[in-house]
């Protein structure tokens, strides 16, 4: 029997407890969601503060703690953290550039059947519009840990989109080194698949399928979306016959947008796969990825629709 892959929350619970061990200024806050903080609560009960179901207050209290010299890590379900507390995020934390790390659980479509109240395909767009905010979208539990370790001790505000459910486990390369630089997970001569978060696993599956179609696809994961790693993305993309981006996010400020701006008109042809504002069906996370065309089948179709042996570079 194969063990289930760890969830981001379980992996981060251990990493957060270690971080609190090491840094007396670190304090954690949650909004009636404690899975991330089990380790901290067990070892340092005074260093976890539960504000209850009150996201605006969560962010305001975190800002006050940061102003008093502490380094808060604050978590809530992504849709409510981002949308309900947006003014507090902007004015209380980001404008003064306070060192607060925000963990948004269930960004994108991760809550599946729970519907649009719980979907947050707008989190990357909205968080990227805040001053001084860095935005990260890890692809699996190990990547989430690599992001947290890179961000702590924080020197400014940061948002990390976390999955609601276990992610497919990725090759170790997906969490190696600095998450702020894209990671090449699979090389290939024909096309480049750039993906972020949950879509990285979809891009790898698409590359496997494309190999059967005779297309040699490279796959790179982009975990840090803002500030966008322009130079590294440009280096990966230049010379390709086609670049396809895949993200379970709205377009503005997301992976496709940033890639298009980076490559410009003279770059390789670009196909952007991202979500839109269609009302979602009652469906699982995986089915919703398919509905919005950002799953492995959507990625494969996008490549096959644009790339043939005739477009293969000489």
């Amino acid at each position: 029997m194969i063990a289930a892959p760890p969830t981001m929350r379980a992996a981060l619970a251990a990493a957060l407890a270690e971080a609190v061990d090491a840094d007396p200024a670190l304090i954690t806050l949650g909004a009636d969601g404690q899975a991330l903080f089990q380790g901290v609560m067990a070892r340092h009960p005074r260093r976890y503060v539960d504000v209850g179901i009150a996201e605006a207050n969560l962010v305001g209290v975190a800002a006050g703690l940061a102003r008093s010299g502490m380094r808060p890590v604050a978590a809530a379900m992504a849709p409510f953290l981002v949308r309900r507390a947006y003014e507090q995020l902007r004015l209380d934390v980001c404008v003064p550039a306070l060192p607060v790390v925000f963990l948004g659980v269930g960004g994108g479509l991760g809550y599946g059947h729970l519907g649009p109240t719980h979907h947050a395909t707008d989190d990357i767009t909205l968080m990227s519009a805040l001053p001084h905010m860095s935005v990260h979208c890890p692809a699996d539990a190990a990547d989430a840990v690599s992001v947290l370790r890179t961000l702590l001790p924080a020197d400014g505000p940061a948002y990390v989109r976390l999955s609601a459910r276990p992610d497919p486990e990725l090759p170790a390369a997906a969490s190696d080194g600095d998450p702020r630089t894209p990671r090449l997970l699979r090389d290939g001569d024909d096309v480049l698949l750039l993906a972020t978060g949950r879509c990285v696993a979809e891009a790898l599956a698409a590359a496997d399928a494309l190999a059967g179609d005779g297309v040699d696809a490279a796959v790179a994961s982009v975990t840090t979306l803002h500030p966008f790693p322009r130079d590294a993305v440009r280096a990966l993309a230049l010379g390709r016959a086609l670049v396809v981006t895949a993200a379970e996010s709205l377009g503005p400020g997301g992976l496709g947008d940033r890639t298009a701006l980076t490559l410009g008109r003279d770059g390789p042809p670009l196909v952007r796969l991202e979500t839109d504002h269609r009302y979602p069906p009652v469906a699982s996370h995986e089915e919703l990825l398919h509905f919005y065309g950002v799953d492995s089948r959507g990625i494969r179709s996008a490549v096959l629709g644009r790339f043939t042996r005739n477009t293969r570079k000489a």
Binding site: I27, A56, G60, V61, G64, E87, L91
Partner: peptide, 25 residues
């Protein structure tokens, strides 16, 4: 000025965080 304000309904949460921070320290 201890904290930028102006959008109403922010100061009390900021004050809670500062008061808690003082107590923890």
């Amino acid at each position: 000025i201890e904290a930028a304000t102006g959008a109403l309904g922010h100061g009390l949460s900021l004050g809670c965080g500062m008061a808690l921070g003082a107590r923890l320290a």
